[in-house]
């Protein structure tokens, strides 16, 4: 069974309208092709395209590198750079997840912050629901 397959009625959480994104601003490749009227599909086109695909890749690492550099620069600017030094992290453990102390994977942390995968999911859901009924 594929977890979450459409046939699984109970997985249907809601109906969502498909929405299509509008065209982006600026001269995107898509618009370029539109403007150039190169819309017919053909083997010739495919050949021309692989070359463009290569260009797109060259362009692509450039913006990936810039976004990565942006995150590393922000990391360097942050006053606190280690997760365990985040004061609100200490607070959530002391006030809620492991009252009075900072103890990861406490019982509550385990319940709220950990999960199961694949074929273990149906039983896990049953477990979660029975816990909720107990609490109610």
């Amino acid at each position: 069974m594929v977890v979450g397959s459409p046939s699984e009625e109970k997985c249907i959480r809601r109906e969502i309208k498909m929405k299509f994104f509008g065209e982006r601003e600026g001269m995107t490749r898509r618009q370029f092709f539109k403007g150039a009227g190169m819309l017919t599909v053909s083997a010739i086109f495919l050949g021309a395209f692989s070359k463009l695909g290569f260009d797109a890749f060259a362009a692509s690492t450039d913006y990936i590198e810039k976004r990565a550099a942006g995150l590393y620069a922000l990391d360097e600017k942050m006053a606190i750079r280690k997760s365990h030094e985040n004061p609100e992290i200490a607070q959530i453990y002391k006030d809620f997840l492991s009252p009075g102390e900072v103890k990861p994977v406490s019982e509550k942390a385990h319940h709220l912050l950990h999960t199961k995968y694949g074929k273990d999911i149906p039983n896990f859901i049953t477990e979660l629901k029975s816990k909720q009924n107990e609490a109610a």
């Binding site: 990565a68 995150l71 360097e76 942050m78 606190i80 750079r81 997760s83 992290i89 607070q91 959530i92």
Partner: peptide, 14 residues
């Protein structure tokens, strides 16, 4: 309460 972050968390994106 659940909005503070650190540099370690920032680099999760890369």
């Amino acid at each position: 309460f659940i909005g503070a972050s650190t540099g370690a968390a920032t680099i999760f994106g890369v």
